[in-house]
Amino acid sequence: MFSIYITSFIVGGLICVIGQLLFDVAKLTPAHTLCILVVTGSVLDGLGLYEPLIDFAGTGATIPITSFGNALTHGALAEAEKHGLIGVLTGMFEVTSSGISAAILFGFIASFIFKPKGSV
């Protein structure tokens, strides 16, 4: 039970290290880096590898952005299993809706409250 806290920290940290290498070694912008990670998560789920990673690392696998790609693919696959090809289209946001709706909601609310500040 407690080991999940250790694996979460380590796996989450390692995914970020891959991101940092893409920043510093491959000289990619943050946007390019995040897109690559999302696509990676999606492909890993297609290969059936991401769900075992979530079982192993908990939030270490669900919090990094790779999880977003995984969740999109997972939703699509689950619906495809039920309804065939059309499910690929309809199932995509089945799992990820909470992340996107939270981001839109909180982003919009933040714009009522906050102003950007050019501090160091």
Partner: peptide, 24 residues
């Protein structure tokens, strides 16, 4: 933190929220 701040979902949130308050 570099990618340590950008890669977790909080970084996704930061990207959305910072753009939102910027364009208010």
């Amino acid at each position: 933190g570099g990618a340590g701040g950008a890669v977790p979902i909080t970084g996704f949130g930061n990207a959305v929220v910072s753009a939102a308050i910027e364009h208010k």
